[in-house]
Amino acid sequence: MNKMRKIMIIMLFAGLITSSCSSVKAYERAKLNDKEMALSPKLSARYELQFHTYREAASGANGGKTGGGCGCN
């Protein structure tokens, strides 16, 4: 659980840093609103995430599915 504590501290620290950033007005977000700038995987990457979950021991923290289904092959 020490690792979880560290992660929570990092997240809190990151939150504090980022909350001090300059505010971006709605009319200044043309680039940020571009679909390529989305902070999530593309829909077309869905099955890549799935096979990574099956072929690697690590999963999660990327918006993918984290349970259900066998993936036994």
């Binding site: 939150g15 980022t18 950033c21 971006v24 680039k31 902070l39 990327n62 918006g63 984290t66």
Partner: peptide, 17 residues
């Protein structure tokens, strides 16, 4: 947690259990 850093940058942090 996600944050716009400026007009060109954004960042996010995530933790799962």
């Amino acid at each position: 947690f996600s944050q716009m850093l400026n007009k060109r940058m954004q960042i996010s942090f995530s933790a799962d259990i």
